[in-house]
Simulated assay, not measured.
Amino acid sequence: MEAPDLLLGAILLLCVAGLLWPFLIYPLILRLLPSRPEAPGGGAPPSASLLFCAYNEAAAMPEKLANLAMLKERHPELEILAFDDGSSDDTAALIEARGDLVTLVRGPGRSGKARGMKRLAAIARGDVLIFTDANVMLDPEAVGNLLARYGDPDVGGVLGSLHYVGEGESATASVGSLYWRIEERLKDEESRTGNVLGADGSIFSIRRALYPQFPDSVLDDLTVSMAVVFAGKRLVKARDVIARERLVTGRGDEYRRKVRIAARAWHTHAYLRPQLRRMAAIDRFKYASRKIVRWFGGLFLMAGAVAALLLAMRISPWLALGGVLLAVVLLILGWRAKGGPLAAIVDILIAYAATLQGVVKAMSGRTVTVWNPAKSR
């Protein structure tokens, strides 16, 4: 085999390894690591404040408020705070009508979730701050099970488990559900072996004393949850703290959502870099494996495709042409399909493209501070 062939083969293998690393190789490594058990809890659970931000969530508010009323009935001492980010629908009015249940803070206009959460955290009185989203519903036992984990003084933050609803409504929803099931298992293993490396906004909590200061441009979920690790406390996941959210079913909505999240995540990574470098070696390994490698999955995919094409051309130009034509036909069929494996493959490729676009956008100095609810949710 000639040197160019060896080089192209090495590039292809490296790209395949990069694509498989966060979903196959990294989980296998985690399973080999020893467990780090939590200390048994004791005493009365800490007080808590539940915080969420909303923008044009009027459609979700009746169910959300009913869910909050159920939680309040089970935990009368639970403080509930909401921030409205200048909604143009009836979101604020619906929340305000339940002033007996929720304390509403109105923003001056579109200022973004990070600023809204900071305002709520500044007035919250609970020892533990519980963060969730306006369209997320919590199971009845969620708050009690979450607060019980704080019986271990080394635990500084607790994540819940997100269960998606509407998995079979589209190929986009099915791929999103599969991705999230993998993500949940990774967090379970990370928690078992020490720390989870970052939370999403559906359901997580931290001790109020650990809440950090940060700019409005970062991803607040990642920034706030990582403050626990930076403080030398444990960030763990509780399987019995269950939140439920409806999946995004439209490709356009999901693409824009992933671009926004990736852009803010990379901007947050740049902001947190000095503290990330000071983490323990195992936590740096986890962070790089679950986040950085995945953010560049689209680059691995493109480089691997080019290497495979060049290898095929060196064997036979006709082989390369046939491969390209077959790939184009399969992509067209997958794009038009309403479901099935080809549609799923297209949605996976779209997800990689959106994430890479978001990272490149952030690297160029641009980020996103506001959000819009997905219409296809």
Rank of each mutant, 00 (worst) to 15 (best):
R192N: 05
R192G: 07
G194S: 09
G194H: 03
V196P: 06
V196E: 04
L197S: 09
G198M: 08
I203W: 06
I206W: 06
I206V: 15
I206D: 03
I206C: 09
R207D: 04
L210F: 10
L210S: 05
Y211R: 03
Y211C: 00
P212S: 02
Q213G: 11
Q213R: 13
Q213P: 04
Q213I: 05
Q213T: 15
F214G: 08
F214E: 01
F214I: 05
P215M: 05
P215Q: 01
P215G: 03
P215S: 02
D216V: 10
S217R: 10
L219F: 14
L219H: 13
D221T: 11
L222R: 08
L222I: 15
T223H: 00
T223N: 00
T223A: 14
V224P: 01
M226W: 14
A227T: 02
V229W: 05
A231T: 09
G232P: 06
G232F: 08
G232A: 07
R234F: 08
V236Q: 02
V236S: 00
K237N: 07
A238P: 06
D240W: 09
D240V: 09
V241S: 03
I242R: 15
I242N: 02
I242Q: 12
I242M: 13
A243W: 01
R244T: 12
E245S: 09
E245I: 01
R246Q: 14
L247T: 06
L247E: 03
V248R: 03
T249E: 06
G250V: 05
G250P: 02
G250H: 05
R251F: 07
G252M: 13
G252N: 10
G252R: 13
Y255Q: 07
R256S: 11
K258I: 15
K258A: 05
V259A: 00
R260P: 04
I261L: 11
A263V: 10
R264T: 05
A265G: 08
W266I: 00
H267F: 13
T268N: 01
A270R: 10
Y271T: 08
Y271L: 07
Y271S: 01
L272R: 01
L272G: 03
R273Y: 14
P274L: 14
R277S: 11
M279K: 06
A280G: 11
A280S: 10
A281G: 04
I282F: 11
D283T: 00
D283A: 04
F285W: 14
K286W: 02
K286L: 11
Y287F: 15
A288T: 12
A288L: 14
A288R: 09
A288I: 12
A288D: 06
A288S: 13
S289E: 08
S289K: 00
K291T: 10
K291P: 04
V293F: 14
R294L: 15
R294A: 13
G297N: 03
G298A: 03
G298Y: 02
G298N: 02
L299N: 06
F300T: 07
F300P: 07
A303I: 15
A305F: 15
A307M: 04
L309S: 08
M313E: 14
R314S: 11
I315Y: 09
L319Y: 07
A320F: 09
G322H: 04
G323Y: 04
V324L: 13
A327T: 14
A327C: 12
V328N: 04
V328W: 13
L330I: 10
L331A: 15
L331D: 12
L331V: 15
L333D: 08
G334P: 02
W335D: 00
